[in-house]
Amino acid sequence: MIRRNIPLTDSPDKWLLLSQVEHARVSADLAEVWGGSLASVVCAPDSSNLHLLEVRQEMLSAILHHDDGWASWEASPPLDPEHGRPWSFMEIHRSQALPLWRDSVLRAHSIGPLAGWAVGGHFAHLLRESHEAHCELSEAWLAEVEAWRSDWLAEWRSLNRPVHTTELAEECLQWLRLFDWFSLWLCCYCPAGQADKPCEAMTLAEGNLACTPVTVTPDGAPDEPGSWRVKVAPWCFTVDKLQLDALGYTVPAQRWSTTGEMAKSRSPMRLRWTLVPA
């Protein structure tokens, strides 16, 4: 669950609650049209290489569904007892998050072995980079998921496709991380400050991807509440401009006693972004 302040200040009037599943859909919308003069995800959508096209479709599906394990938890999100507000995904303890991540990994594997391998690697990376990586619970989770990943990579490579290399699998993991990052930046932070103040650009990815670095910045005041124009440089999409949206709901920023009480006050809200060349 993404909990975002509305407005984006330390003393908000409302909280916007966005599903991780909805954020993942935005990730997939970005991935679908990524390319232009830069590298496409795995290959161009009109590539004549059918094996690469299979990999591309599996990865686009993996990006779309990489957070599906959160769905049941978010249907009735628990409250932080200290503050009486819904937990943000950045706040919940590993004992709550790891079963959701595990479910996401297993659901991804139902798409295909590469999808499961990449989504497992995505969450393993997040866990290793966290301050909770070296506890018994985390180490047991990593051991289980890495064993799965080893089997799944071997399964994928055993299909004997000439393109099924470890290098391509690693590139696919980087693609997943890139679009997760881009979507989270939009859903959580854009604009990162007041509309009349500049905000920092974001470098989208590092490592093996030829399409980096890319920076995005909000541009001017929103046309309407929750709607922003975002400059992207270099332009990295196959369309002249890209319109994205994410549907969530708002609740008053106050202390709540129960999830049911909070649910009665929900109002739908849609965030919208128009991405344009800088």
Score class of each variant (00 low, 15 high):
L106N: 06
L8V: 03
P78G: 09
P222V: 05
E54K: 11
H122L: 08
P77W: 01
T259R: 05
C43M: 04
R25Q: 14
A201F: 03
H164M: 10
V214R: 01
W228N: 00
A201K: 04
V230H: 00
T238G: 06
P198Y: 01
C190T: 06
A143M: 04
W256R: 04
D219V: 08
A39M: 11
Q194Y: 01
F89M: 05
S88Q: 04
T258E: 07
S265Q: 15
G84R: 01
P162S: 13
H109R: 13
F123L: 03
F182V: 15
A39Q: 12
L8I: 02
V119I: 12
E91Q: 13
L50R: 13
L168V: 12
E82N: 07
D68W: 02
E171R: 10
K14Q: 14
P86K: 07
D13Y: 07
W15C: 04
F182H: 09
S47I: 10
R272V: 12
E58L: 09
D13K: 09
K14H: 14
L64T: 11
R107K: 15
M262D: 09
V26N: 00
W141L: 03
E146T: 07
W235G: 03
R102L: 10
G69M: 03
A201Y: 05
L275H: 00
E224N: 05
V251L: 05
A253H: 11
D67C: 12
C187S: 14
P222T: 01
D13G: 09
D219L: 09
Q96N: 07
L52I: 13
P268T: 14
L114T: 00
N208R: 12
C188G: 08
P277H: 10
A133N: 01
R229H: 04
S27K: 02
A221G: 01
L8Y: 03
P162I: 13
L244K: 02
G69H: 01
E32Q: 13
E146A: 05
D245Y: 12
A195N: 04
V21Y: 06
T258K: 04
E155W: 07
Y249P: 02
A62M: 05
R272I: 08
C190N: 01
A115Q: 03
A221I: 01
H164L: 09
S11T: 08
H109S: 06
L100S: 00
R270E: 15
I92R: 11
N160K: 14
A24S: 13
D67F: 10
H109D: 01
L127C: 10
K231N: 10
V41G: 04
G121C: 05
V251G: 01
E129M: 11
V239W: 07
Q20D: 08
A133H: 00
D151P: 02
T238S: 15
L178Y: 10
V26A: 02
L173Q: 07
N49C: 13
P45L: 07
L126E: 05
H23A: 14
Q96A: 11
Q194M: 06
E155S: 15
W73P: 00
L244R: 02
S104D: 03
E136S: 06
R161P: 07
D180A: 10
P77Q: 11
Q254N: 11
N208L: 14
L30C: 03
C211H: 06
R161L: 15
L16W: 05
V230W: 00
D80P: 00
T258Q: 10
H51W: 15
W101E: 00
